[in-house]
Simulated scan of single mutants.
Amino acid sequence: MTRRAFITGITGQDGSYLAELLLSKDYEVHGLVRRASTLNRGRIDHLHADQRLHLHYGDLTDGVSLSNLVRDIEPHEVYNLGAQSHVKVSFEMPEYTASTDAVGTLRLLEAIRASGIDCRYYQASTSEMFGATPPPQHEGTAFYPRSPYGAAKLYSHWVTVNYREAYDLFAVSGILFNHESPRRGESFVTRKITLGVAAIKLGVTDRLELGNLDAVRDWGYAPEYVEGMWRMLQHDTPTDFVLATGTGRTVRDFCEAAFSHVGLRWEDHVVHDKQYERPTEVDALIGDASKARELLGWEATTHADDLARLMVDADIEQLGRLIDR
Results as ranks from 00 to 15, higher is better:
residue 162 N to Y: 14
residue 51 Q to V: 00
residue 104 G to P: 00
residue 320 G to L: 03
residue 153 K to G: 01
residue 204 V to S: 01
residue 122 Y to K: 00
residue 142 A to S: 13
residue 184 R to A: 11
residue 200 I to N: 03
residue 146 R to Q: 08
residue 129 M to R: 00
residue 81 L to K: 14
residue 208 L to W: 12
residue 313 D to W: 06
residue 265 R to N: 11
residue 219 W to Y: 14
residue 269 H to T: 06
residue 92 E to W: 10
residue 80 N to T: 13
residue 67 S to Y: 05
residue 161 V to D: 12
residue 26 D to R: 15
residue 46 H to Y: 10
residue 187 S to F: 12
residue 165 E to V: 02
residue 142 A to H: 10
residue 127 S to H: 06
residue 74 E to P: 03
residue 19 A to Q: 04
residue 204 V to G: 01
residue 147 S to L: 10
residue 127 S to V: 07
residue 35 R to D: 09
residue 311 M to E: 14
residue 131 G to T: 07
residue 132 A to P: 01
residue 256 E to Q: 14
residue 266 W to C: 12
residue 77 E to L: 15
residue 297 G to W: 15
residue 93 M to D: 04
residue 317 E to N: 08
residue 161 V to I: 04
residue 187 S to T: 07
residue 157 H to V: 05
residue 127 S to Q: 05
residue 305 D to Y: 02
residue 6 F to R: 01
residue 291 K to A: 13
residue 149 Y to A: 12
residue 194 T to R: 01
residue 241 F to A: 07
residue 254 F to W: 09
residue 312 V to Q: 04
residue 20 E to P: 02
residue 125 S to H: 00
residue 310 L to K: 06
residue 226 V to S: 14
residue 12 G to Y: 07
residue 63 G to R: 07
residue 269 H to N: 10
residue 160 T to A: 11
residue 280 T to Q: 07
residue 281 E to I: 13
residue 245 T to C: 12
residue 277 E to F: 04
residue 285 L to T: 10
residue 226 V to T: 14
residue 25 K to H: 04
residue 134 P to N: 03
residue 177 F to W: 09
residue 89 V to D: 09
residue 293 R to T: 06
residue 218 D to Q: 11
residue 219 W to F: 15
residue 85 S to L: 01
residue 188 F to S: 02
residue 224 E to V: 14
residue 28 E to I: 09
residue 108 L to A: 05
residue 230 W to S: 13
residue 190 T to W: 14
residue 107 R to F: 13
residue 9 G to P: 10
residue 154 L to D: 01
residue 309 R to P: 00
residue 151 A to L: 07
residue 172 V to M: 12
residue 76 H to W: 08
residue 53 L to C: 07
residue 133 T to L: 01
residue 72 D to C: 02
residue 185 G to K: 02
residue 192 K to F: 06
residue 268 D to Q: 06
residue 39 L to M: 04
residue 172 V to W: 05
residue 274 K to R: 08
residue 121 Y to E: 10
residue 127 S to T: 04
residue 5 A to V: 06
residue 282 V to G: 02
residue 218 D to A: 09
residue 122 Y to T: 02
residue 101 D to I: 04
residue 151 A to T: 06
residue 209 E to P: 00
residue 178 N to C: 06
residue 18 L to Q: 12
residue 173 S to N: 12
residue 155 Y to V: 03
residue 259 F to K: 07
residue 158 W to E: 05
residue 202 L to N: 13
residue 304 A to T: 14
residue 178 N to D: 13
residue 213 L to C: 10
